[in-house]
């Protein structure tokens, strides 16, 4: 097995590091969910995490906002260590990091509007009018102005996920984490969620996206990180990963998804010097 790749300066970097994982390890019983993962996310960047199911991508996201405790290594957010064992610290970090879940996790007993305002009134202590004002703007932004009064059960999966995005954005986060945001969706509603995410990326939002949507990773991602068995096996620009992956396992994974790119011998050889 090859050693985990070292941190490297990246070509397409837009800003300074906002989130850094340093040799992060996480176990569930005997299973190494994360086995010494190091990774940097820079401001304004869209970083896509790809790889087989159970390879540790989602776990890494959960470590970022202190939903998991670590067995080793550390996570730095804006230069300060994220400490899951310190509830006050964890809450501060989470307020500045939006998270979108695979299963939406909207609050089913609240309307779409209340789903968005609940964090504003309870965490940011905004008054009801200011919270509603902000929430309506965000629902408009995700194209759901007319669904403010709807309960989650009345919305399609794509609509629910867009409400969830609005809920996360309402806290005005510095960074958005997306955990397979389209994996639980019907094919016909995937597009509406991806286009909201694309618009967000175009505005310059820093995003970490765990996804199986290779097309999204290729077009919208600034940096692509490939996971396998709890390790980062390869990272690079979308062009590099999708057209000239150097690691056999990466090509195999992309091949399983029906993605063959241009991973011929010459492209691999050409890409190699750029990584060293």
């Amino acid at each position: 097995m090859m050693p985990p790749p070292q941190l490297q300066a990246r070509v397409g970097s837009k800003g300074s590091a906002i989130l850094a994982f340093e040799d992060v390890s996480k176990r569930y019983g005997p299973v190494h969910a994360l086995d010494g993962v190091s990774l940097t996310v820079n401001r304004g960047e869209v970083v896509c995490l790809i790889g087989p199911s159970g390879s540790g991508k989602s776990t890494l996201l959960r470590c970022a906002n202190a939903l998991e405790t670590l067995e080793g290594g550390r996570v730095l957010f804006d230069g300060a260590e994220v400490r899951a064992s310190d509830p006050a610290n964890a809450r501060k970090v989470r307020q500045r990091m939006g998270m979108v879940f695979q299963n939406f996790e909207l609050f089913p007993h609240l309307t779409a509007l209340r789903n968005v305002t609940i964090g504003l009134t309870t965490v940011l202590k905004l008054d009801a009018a200011a919270a509603e004002d902000r929430a309506r703007k965000l629902l408009a932004k995700v194209g759901l102005s007319d669904k403010a009064a709807a309960n989650p059960a009345m919305l399609s999966g794509g609509q629910q996920q867009r409400v969830a995005i609005a809920r996360a954005l309402a806290m005005e986060p510095d960074l958005m984490l997306f955990d397979e945001p389209t994996s639980a969706l019907d094919p016909e509603t995937i597009g509406e969620v991806l286009s909201v995410m694309k618009a967000l990326a175009d505005e310059g939002m820093t995003m970490v996206v765990v996804t199986h949507e290779m097309d999204f990773a290729r077009r919208v991602g600034d940096w692509v990180v490939v996971f396998d068995k709890g390790r980062v096996i390869e990272e690079g620009s979308p062009k590099q990963i999708f057209e000239a992956a150097t690691v056999e396992r990466t090509r195999e994974f992309l091949g399983h998804l029906g993605w063959h790119g241009e991973s011929n011998i010459e492209a691999v050889a050409a890409a190699k010097p750029a990584r060293s």
Binding site: A90, R91, M99, F101, N103, E105, I118, V123, M171
Partner: peptide, 23 residues
């Protein structure tokens, strides 16, 4: 997941219990 969703927007566990879980 409901706890995680509440935590992800920075709510304290007591708030999640009162506003999200208990209802």
């Amino acid at each position: 997941g409901q706890w995680n969703a509440g935590r992800a927007i920075g709510m304290a566990d007591g708030q999640i219990m009162w506003y999200i879980v208990l209802p």
